[in-house]
Design a protein around this nucleic acid. Structure first.
Length: 204
DNA sequence: TTCAGGATGTACT
DNA sequence: GTACATCCTGAAC
């Protein structure tokens, strides 16, 4: 198993957002191991991006995590009830991160379905299957991710990213893969940053 | 199938 | 007090 390392998260945030597509998100919750393939990401670049919580060097209790070492998990609560998962990118202090917006379960989908819908995958409706993990709040619900994981360092055994998981027969993605590019979602307040093409996704 | 509206709580002004 | 990197429901089509 090859985990994404510090080197990976040190790269440019937009590049990292593209490179995260097709990689594996591993969540270990108690005795249950769940693995998803990342299908949608967004880049948030602190210094120049009005949509980023740490725009212009803003430091508050919440944004403190964004100034951490590359690879640190940044988890925050949005709209009072949903969590969003990000990973810090760039050199420490850059305050940039990649938001994980969507993924598909590739191992132990039943454990994810129970957390998401309270039912096994075979009992899900077509509508539920289609809307399984296609949003940041849904993704966190399905993987039991909340603010207790905020500021989790790169090296840990409960939430991490991997290039491959040969023991589960999950191969590494090709170096180059096709993906779509578009504007980010839900940042209508961000003025010129609204139009930055920093959302990336793959088909599935 | 799309759409409006409400839920809900924390951070920050 | 206001805004928020969202999601679900129910109604209309």
């Amino acid at each position: 198993m090859a985990r994404l390392d510090r080197e990976f998260f040190l790269q440019d945030t937009v590049a990292a957002a593209q490179e995260l597509l097709g990689r594996y998100l591993v969540r270990v919750d108690g005795t249950e191991v769940m693995v998803c393939r990342i299908t949608e990401t967004e880049a948030y670049v602190g210094a120049i991006d009005k949509a980023c919580h740490a725009y212009g060097g803003r430091r508050t209790k919440r944004t403190e995590t964004l100034y951490s070492a590359p690879g640190t998990a940044y988890v925050y609560l949005i709209y009072g009830m949903y969590s969003c998962l990000n990973f810090v990118t760039g050199p420490e202090g850059t305050a940039s991160a990649v938001l994980i917006r969507g993924c598909t379960p590739v191992y132990n989908a039943d454990a994810v379905a129970r957390r998401r819908f309270g039912a096994e995958t075979r009992k899900l409706s077509a509508y539920q299957r289609k809307n399984f993990m296609n949003g940041p709040g849904k993704l966190c619900k399905g993987l039991s991710i909340d603010r207790s994981l905020n500021a989790l360092p790169l090296e840990n055994d409960v939430l991490y990213l991997a290039h491959d998981l040969p023991e589960l027969n999950l191969p590494r993605r090709p170096d180059e893969i096709p993906f779509h590019t578009g504007k980010r979602i839900g940042i209508d307040y961000a003025e010129e940053a609204i139009d930055f093409p920093w959302r990336f996704w793959v088909d599935e």
